[in-house]
Computed example of a mutant assay.
Amino acid sequence: MNFELSEKEALLQKKVREFAEEKLLPGVIERDETSSYPIDLYREMVDMGLIGLPYEKEYGGQGGNYLDYAIAVKEISRVDASLGISFSVCTSLYGGSVYNSANEEQKKKFLKPVLEGGALGSFGLTEPNAGSDAGGCVTVAEKKGDHYVLNGAKCFTTNGPLCDYIAVYALTQPELKSKGLSLFLVEKGTPGFTIGKVENKMGIRAAQVSETIFTDCVVPAENLLGKEGDGFKIAMKTLDGGRIGVAAQGLGIAEGAFEIARKYLMKREQFGKPLYKNQYLAFKMAELECVIDQARLMLYKAAMDKSEGRPYSIAAAKAKLLCTNAAMQVTTEAVQMLGGNGFMKDYHVERMMRDAKITQIYEGTNEIQKLIISGALFK
């Protein structure tokens, strides 16, 4: 059993970390303050092959695995969690929805533009009354000849305002509730597909999140992915993979804040000595290092379970729970360790703390992760 990254994985980590520090770091505070999305930097990530890392080359991917993907999301999120979640949604949620349901022709048509072409993908499942209870969706899709007509609205749609494609879950048989849920691919510019309110958020402020509205939106029948009624099954499988992405985002935030705090404690002096010479602070950092290590190991296990075809739902739930809790714990402590400076934007950790909170909420709240984990314990 080897707990070290391979040479190839270590090179990937180094490459993405250098990109994040050289390209993402200089403008990250301004992007947070203005809620502006760096589409040019995102497209550089596409050109580096990051978005398609875990998919086969025939679909525009890089032929890697989910550990490669988790490493890349983690490294981006160490510096910019907003780009980290945009990346994760394109690869895990949009890409996973298509990959887990589409036929070969649909995969090539709808994956390639996102994985290698720079188009943005999005994921439409959550509604005002359907969050943790995904079966509470009320968006409907009525078949009329060679097309479906969608009516309804999704909320909190990451990449929504900028998306070129959105995977939309809608009821084709409303009376069956979750068993009547189906999956459709809607393209930008489709009549009846509009963007509603763009959200003003506490964290991940550069990520673009909005309502997506469907009003008599006509979608060709060939844009149904999978069969009618398969949507809930596809969504749950897709979210399992998405939780690995959010876990990687959380771990990246934790690692980034930890490193800022570590360097600060070595440089800052009080009472005639560096802060790290205070045993309380040194011991606190030791505890946080352990928290980060256990989260990292769980994330890598979940990623490898998925990559190697083993059951991974429970491992993904554990990774999401541990990594996102680590993000919140480490960033909160980092702000405290930096004192007044920790409260100032120039030191980044206050932004990381705000970014960390949402990781405990989206793609399945951490309470839902505990429900999944405990459910498996008592079968």
Rank of each mutant, 00 (worst) to 15 (best):
K188S: 04
K188R: 15
G189A: 05
T190G: 02
T190M: 04
P191W: 07
F193W: 11
T194K: 12
I195Q: 00
G196S: 02
G196C: 07
I204G: 03
I204F: 08
R205P: 00
A206S: 13
A206I: 07
Q208K: 14
S210L: 01
S210I: 03
T212Q: 12
T212W: 06
T212R: 07
F214P: 01
F214A: 07
V218T: 15
V218M: 09
P220T: 10
A221S: 13
L225G: 04
L225F: 07
G226E: 01
E228T: 07
E228V: 04
G229L: 05
D230P: 00
D230K: 00
F232Y: 13
K233N: 08
I234Y: 00
I234N: 12
A235H: 02
A235L: 04
M236G: 01
M236S: 12
M236H: 06
K237F: 00
T238F: 00
D240Y: 05
G241V: 06
G241Q: 12
G241P: 00
G242C: 06
I244R: 09
I244L: 04
G245E: 03
G245R: 10
V246A: 09
V246C: 06
A248E: 05
Q249Y: 01
Q249I: 10
Q249K: 11
L251M: 10
G252V: 01
I253M: 08
E255M: 14
G256D: 03
G256C: 01
E259Q: 13
E259Y: 02
I260D: 06
A261E: 02
R262V: 08
R262M: 10
K263L: 08
L265T: 11
L265Q: 08
K267M: 15
K267C: 10
K267P: 00
R268P: 01
R268L: 10
E269C: 08
Q270C: 06
K273H: 13
K273W: 06
P274H: 11
P274W: 08
L275I: 10
K277M: 12
K277H: 12
N278Y: 15
A282T: 10
A282I: 06
K284Y: 01
A286D: 14
A286V: 09
E287Y: 11
L288S: 11
L288Y: 09
E289L: 10
C290I: 13
V291Q: 09
V291T: 15
Q294M: 12
A295S: 10
R296H: 05
R296E: 15
L297Q: 15
L297N: 11
M298V: 12
L299W: 03
K301R: 15
A302C: 05
A302Q: 08
A303T: 00
M304A: 03
M304K: 14
